[in-house]
Amino acid sequence: MSSTPDTVGPYPLPSVEPTFGPTPSQTVGPYFSFGLTEPWDEREDAVAPYRTDAIEIFGQVFDGLGEPIPDAMIETWQADPDGRFNHPDDPRGAVPYEGFRGFARSGTDEQGNWRVRTLKPGSIPAADGVTPQAPHIVVTVMARGVLRQLTTRIYFGDEPEANAADPVLQSLPEDARRTLIAEPVEGRGYRFDIHLQGDDETAFFQF
């Protein structure tokens, strides 16, 4: 670990003139759980409890030393099993799916474990409107020490044909592509570990 710096700054004092523009991101910090994950009614559920067709996706979040990160937050957003989003900007129109929100939020525990309970998404149209995108989930990662949220995707290891045709997966080098595949785990669901840094560093996107 790095030693404690003796001095930091001095940075210049802020000027007083405000200018209009995007508000910058700041780290979520170490103490967000009482403000973000604990008051969240549905906890790790993107799906109502009565849906027996739910799947669990779980894993750990690691730093560049391979240590689990106990103060990270994961958010997931995804299509429903028909490949639709209940959102007005879905060009096919917003359509609700019974018992399904498409969104979940999970903190990590002391071993860096996170989990969400959801429905497996369907394929969705790609930007070219021709090649469908393989079923996937969009994942946002925040943590102490992360200055701006990181975004990645979860694809499913039991969809090899769809994955092989997915334009986003195929645009990535092999060592990045494999970091986006959640592998099925018998009796439990799918495992998806997230490495913020290091040899197994997860592929993160800008958009």
Binding site: G64, Q197, F207
Partner: peptide
Amino acid sequence: EYRSTKYRFPKRPLFHLPPSIG
């Protein structure tokens, strides 16, 4: 100077994602 960033930022540049409904 913000020490917690050291092992928590991706070293590989972010991959470009084309516009997508998700």
